[in-house]
Amino acid sequence: MLLVVEQFLNGLQFGLLLFLLAAGLTLVFGIMDLVNLAHGSLYMMGAYFAATFAAWTGSFVLGALMALGATLVLGIVLEVTALRHLYGRDHLDHVLATFGLILFFNEAVRLIWGPAGLALPLPAWLTVPVPILPGIHYPAYRLAIIVVALLVALLLYLGVMRTRIGMLIRAGASNREMIGALGINIKLLYTLVFGLGAALAGLAGLMQAPILTVQIGMGENILILAFVIIVIGGIGSIRGAFLAAIFVGMIDTLGRAFLPNLLRQVLSGAAASTAAPALSSMLIYLLMAIVLVVRPEGLFPAHRR
């Protein structure tokens, strides 16, 4: 029982983290029609910035806030110098150009921080287990991730659906020429959206950093999960990304936790322990394949243009 609740919460936490990453990706794709592979690099930079700033200031929270600002600025610089010129180009051009950016970022990190990973230690008050149910404790930090990510998701929803800027963003997604003709500075709007996406990726990276080590290439594996999520959820749909992210986070975590035992019931011990790791890492891709067979446009396709 304890294990089930704990793994369930782990799945939720991982899913929410994936949502932060996928939201930025799907926002940038939905609005600017830009495929950004380097989104994972922004996630990585968020983690590196946080580790560095936290070490400088001696405070985890201060470091995290500074890192958030730094990824926002980095995203804006990236958009203005490079990615802006890719709007309206072929998707293949996006893939190649941002692939080049990944190479650049990985190498730049290796040059600045060295090939060995960094650690981002947590302050003591975040390491204590918190009682969530009678007799069941859960690490405070993971709980904090869940709360922060839910809060950000809520703010994102309110921001996009209820504010003037959000209205402009949605309008820009459905017809960029028209909104430009109405006197809105569409360039500035795009830069803002990209910066927001970058900050979300950075937030995901810096929150994940204390759980895993901060290392080169950390953004790449999780970026592919984010792709799977937006394919399942429907590209351009934030609501779809949210639901798909929770779903994928759960399936991945619960699969890894319980599949080996389940297999052991059916197969012999040796066969089960061989098949389990491969099968549990395949699980979400199988899920994606099933979704594609049933709904090729994803579960919650955004309004098609």
């Binding site: 490079a82 890719l86 150009a97 080049g100 650049f104 970022f105 190498e107």
Partner: peptide, 12 residues
């Protein structure tokens, strides 16, 4: 890769 990456961007 520090040179190769931006080079790809320029080629595109």
């Amino acid at each position: 890769a520090l040179i190769m990456g931006p080079l790809l961007l320029l080629i595109v």
